[in-house]
Design a protein around this nucleic acid. Sequence first.
DNA 1: CCTCCTTGGGAAGTGTCACTATCCAAGCAT
DNA 2: ATGCTTGGATAGTGACACTTCCCAAGGAGG
Lengths: 214, 214
Amino acid sequence: MRLAELSARSGVSTATIKYYLREGLLAPGRQLNATTAEYDETHLRRLRLVRALIQVGRVPVASAREVLKHVDDESLGRTIRLGAALWALPQAPDPDEEDPATAAATAEVDRLLRTLGWDAAREIGALSPVHRSLVALVATQIRLGYPCDAETMAPYAELMRQAAARDLDRMETYESDTEMVESAVSSAVLFEPVLRALHRLAQEEESARRYGLE
Amino acid sequence: MRLAELSARSGVSTATIKYYLREGLLAPGRQLNATTAEYDETHLRRLRLVRALIQVGRVPVASAREVLKHVDDESLGRTIRLGAALWALPQAPDPDEEDPATAAATAEVDRLLRTLGWDAAREIGALSPVHRSLVALVATQIRLGYPCDAETMAPYAELMRQAAARDLDRMETYESDTEMVESAVSSAVLFEPVLRALHRLAQEEESARRYGLE
DNA sequence: CCTCCTTGGGAAGTGTCACTATCCAAGCAT
DNA sequence: ATGCTTGGATAGTGACACTTCCCAAGGAGG
């Protein structure tokens, strides 16, 4: 498969593919001679993943490169590789340490984790970008005056724990580590929006049931 | 409160506030004379909401203006106003009608809604931007070769239904329509990221439990 | 052989977006 | 009077994701 065909089959312009090659998001094809390179199905698949990351996940090109670097790094153990790839995804901005709301949010998140018995999450704590961005988000809620305390979040957290258990069950069906890490990245970038859409759809449904459609 | 104080209390530079005023994201203050305008707590609150929309929700300025226009439109009924505000939030790109994956996705989403008995959602169907973006997201998953059928999604949808029921319960505590619509927008923009963070944290927790921290 | 088209590759340009810097004339404060 | 700040306007900035342009090297048709 040459560049033109890769472009036709993926729906991505040749100029954009060349840009991705330059940016290191896509491995170069097998060079046949000075003016011809050959690509295969793995390139097509990776290209589609890149598009999904950038267009659906709105992941900046530089972050996408980081994420994919970890996906491809076979020297790492499965857990580390997965964590590294997911932690390279863009997060909500880090908390503003100056803000008093941040202190309140930190306390509230810690209380939530203790209530739930999520001890691993408490141990990892501020090391995890996810934890930090959760604190920042809760702080923003507090600053706007919306209640976002441990009691409010706990039932939601329990729902998300059930979702996470299901995610990991699905993930265990993959044989190779590379497949698994790639699926986890896809899941974070593509399945999370699906969840969000389901959530909003559920809100519309529930609202229509309670208050009618008018 | 004058511009400088509004800036100090919100942490947003005066230049940026002036930009928001120009873009119609913030109502002008009460003009005291040619060179002085006075702002109050409602301006501060709105400014923080605007920042949350733009910085946390990554909502484009133009969309934020649309959303806020609906939030402020007291001539509409509660349900319409809420729907209009939420539908003005940016969604995943619309499905590509040409793509065969889109047809498969449409069928799968319809099957999901029938299985769940979400009849209102089925009736609204493609009118809802949420429905359309769900189809587009499922199509992307299918194109990448990840299973995203009704059976896979149904348990997640049920979890999201429980979350939505809880959302609406919380929303009913607000007295005025304006408060309610504003809280719904905040919820969509700020609480959804909280949910996502809880989801990822739950994944980390569950993964640490199953496979350890090494 | 010559000519024309296509190929991959790289530098430079484009459009968008969210600010940001600069300027201005008009007040108010000391 | 002088040195602020104010609202208002215009132009500029920097990041980002492309996209256009140009090139030299193949290969295909005549």
